[in-house]
Design a protein around this nucleic acid. Structure first.
Lengths: 297, 297
DNA sequence: CCCGGGAGG
DNA sequence: CCCTCCCGG
């Protein structure tokens, strides 16, 4: 019976990812079609709270449902833990997996192989992290466009402010130093407070906050929100924009522009728990004409 | 016997102040002589930690010994509490007492009547204090010179930084607005960190830090020093210059200049405790020729 | 009246 | 992984 349970469980996890679990098939097909268009790129970033041991199986299943539903071209995960990675690899066969570490908790990048080809990947250490954080980078090709994908989980907690800003500075440095023919997308759990970015003098020239580019939509502002999410049993309503995407455009050629940003993971599981204490960010981008071409047209 | 004890205790307190308790009589006489010279002014500022209930009687006795030893013309005390005030008033008969409040803990000014005549006193509220702090002011006459004496205990703790700087700003404002024929001396527990003064752009024009005027003597730098003072059972060595004196010179006439600054209360009592967690500051000033007169001489 | 860590809301 | 309070170092 133990074996049967495992198979059934495994089956339900595969089913969660591969289908039959969502009723609105037409919406799924629309999304798949959007994603499949070669000038559209979808990116999903999510801190999945692998350090929380509550309701792990239900939560992983919920995660797989969302990954299967949206089939993002690029998935950026934070707080992965080895058991979770094992399950994801077992279920998801059409993605390439990059991981920031092998033990503890760490970031990961999932690339849909038929859409995004990895050229090179890189793990950058934060020399003064006290929480084992690092920066995970993938240089990829998407529809012939060179793209640099980055993710990280910056130092946590209010007390980690100084180190977090050190790390953010390093992320921005890497973005700036990426060859200028590459579009650069960073997505991750920055743990940033707005005043911290101000303290650094705002975003560097050439680097934009994707949420700001989209006009600061209120409904996708707070990615960590204890007024709704009670996974952490925090009684006070606190809402913060911890999870962010940064974009640096390529110097020439087609320009990648954000089209939409949606928060996911907002619904409770049957176990009365959310998939994570963070919402996920689903973001769509489109390659359009470059600025130069627009002007000369 | 209870009555007898009280009389004996009271006697020992009087003795602590009035004499027979210090062996180096010659040093005392020197100090008394210095103080008695009409162009010399002595100021003592001390946070006596009235909120600490340990060894109260021994500590008050120690305080009285120091007050009796130095007989400062002006004594500025912080963290006075009513029982302590009662004792001081009972023992010290030749001083005028000004108090910032009647309950809780508060500042006080003691003026040697035969040397310093109080013209007017004033209590200035800090509108946003969360710790009941205020500014106590005395306009006095010393050897015919108009003098404004101020003391305060600015908002405590690192977290009180913003409020503390509001209060400091207010102190400086009152110093600046004192009639220009008055010399102004502020002394008290400022709880300041050096970076906070920097944040305010340094000292205002016309106001000086007396410790700086004396060339920043290292031996009287730290008035709160857990590397020596273990009253608070803090194992880490932390040294801060919380207690400060500010001086604004008079616009004309004789100029008051600091001559020396000494920390007091550095010795442990028999009960293996210090009088306070702060050292006291004993400062001597001298009236000299005004700058104008120096130049024209 | 320092600082950091742990518990509880 | 919010905040505040309390305690110990």
């Amino acid at each position: 019976t133990k074996c049967t349970q495992t198979i059934q469980s495994s089956f339900s996890l595969h089913q969660a990812y591969w289908g039959k679990s969502f009723t609105d098939q037409s919406a799924d097909e629309q999304k798949t079609q959007a994603s499949a268009r070669s000038n559209h790129l979808t990116v999903l970033s999510w801190n999945i709270d692998g350090l929380d041991d509550e309701n792990v199986r239900d939560r992983v299943k919920g995660l797989l449902s969302h990954l299967g539903k949206y089939r993002a071209d690029v998935v950026l995960l934070q707080e992965l833990v080895p058991p979770c990675v094992k399950i994801l690899k077992n279920v998801i066969k059409d993605d390439q997996f990059l991981e920031g570490s092998e033990d503890g908790y760490f970031c990961g990048i999932l690339l849909r192989k038929e859409r995004v080809q990895c050229i090179q990947s890189n793990i950058v250490k934060y020399p003064t992290t006290e929480q084992g954080r690092n920066l995970l980078i993938a240089n990829v090709s998407f529809s012939g466009h060179p793209l640099c994908i980055m993710t990280s989980h910056l130092e946590s907690c209010k007390t980690g402010s100084q180190e977090r800003l050190n790390q953010l500075w390093r992320v921005w440095k890497w973005m700036k130093e990426t060859p200028e023919d590459h579009t650069v997308i960073f997505g991750g759990d920055t743990n940033l407070r707005d005043w911290e970015v101000k303290k650094l003098g705002g975003l560097p020239d050439g680097i934009s906050d994707v949420w700001e580019m989209l006009g600061q939509p209120e409904e996708s502002r707070y990615t960590w929100d204890t007024s709704i999410n009670d996974n952490n049993d925090i009684p006070n309503p606190i809402r913060l924009r911890f999870d962010r995407l940064f974009l640096k455009g390529a110097a020439n050629g087609a320009q990648l522009r954000p089209e939409s940003m949606t928060l996911i993971g907002l619904e409770k599981l049957k176990c009365d728990y959310f998939i994570s204490d963070h919402w996920g960010i689903l973001c769509t981008f489109k390659y359009g004409e470059s600025e130069e071409q627009c002007v000369t047209d």
